[in-house]
Amino acid sequence: MEYFDTLIVILQSTVRVSVPLILAALAGLYSERAGIFDIGLEGKMLAAAFAGGAAASVYGSALVGLGAAVFVSVCLALVHGFASITQRGNQIVSGVAINFIALGATVILGQAWFRQGGRTPQLGEGERFTTVELPFAAELADVPILGSIYSNLLSGHFLLTYFAFALVPFTWWVLYRTRFGLRLRAVGENPGAVDTAGISVIWLRYRAVICCGILCGIAGAYLSMAMTAGFVKGMTAGKGFIALAALIFAKWKPVNVMFACLLFGFLDAMSIRMQGNALPIVGEVPVQFMQALPYILTVILLAGFIGKAIPPRAGGVPYVKER
């Protein structure tokens, strides 16, 4: 029973840390499936976390914070779109630029506005998201196994958590069952064909980039307004890149993305849990190894040793009409 309780605790923190990964990886999915590579997920998330934390504390409302987060993230996404779609610039370079601009600007503006060393003020009641209890969670808690799973693992999360998990089937439906999704996938594989069919490649790609911005914004808001109560300098700490790794690990498929993010989240939760504790067979594993594991796994996957990750064919290539 003790092991079971430990497992529930680890799984619960897995869900907690997986949510921003899922949101950001799905954000990247919309963009990359349309042929726009985006390594600026990290920067957009960071800027959104800052905007959310700042606006929520100034206006005293979590919803205003969420709105600000999404707005800022979409603006950055549009900069990326302008550079890579309209100006046909290098998409990787543009993504790198956005990461740096967000990293610097959040600290400079945060220090200028709040004077707390790059933090935003601690968010109080009503300024941040609160957890919701599912019905009968308290009553069922005493039921063995199932009750514990229901009331400790499934209940007691933020609405954004349920939103993130609901977004996975929704994205699958959009991608594979709607006209927009079909065109989105087509424009990432063969934009010429989409253009021939009389559909604007540029407008389609801009819409994909905006979707990416919205989801990155929500991911950022989750970081600063749900997971913690306020923005801290550099708080994304590489989560955008882990999300990118998860997206590749999942071979650009929505349901796989969820599992990849849960796996990487689980590794993260384990590494926190295992600090100083020895594992049964291998003995004590260095924390650093656990932290590096998502990246190592992605490299091994990319090398084609566990299946093959094939990116959308037109990814990274700006579209030029024949002239």
Partner: peptide, 12 residues
């Protein structure tokens, strides 16, 4: 951190 912004802008 101002330099980080300038660095990003130059890359952009």
């Amino acid at each position: 951190d101002m330099i980080t912004i300038i660095q990003g802008l130059v890359i952009l």
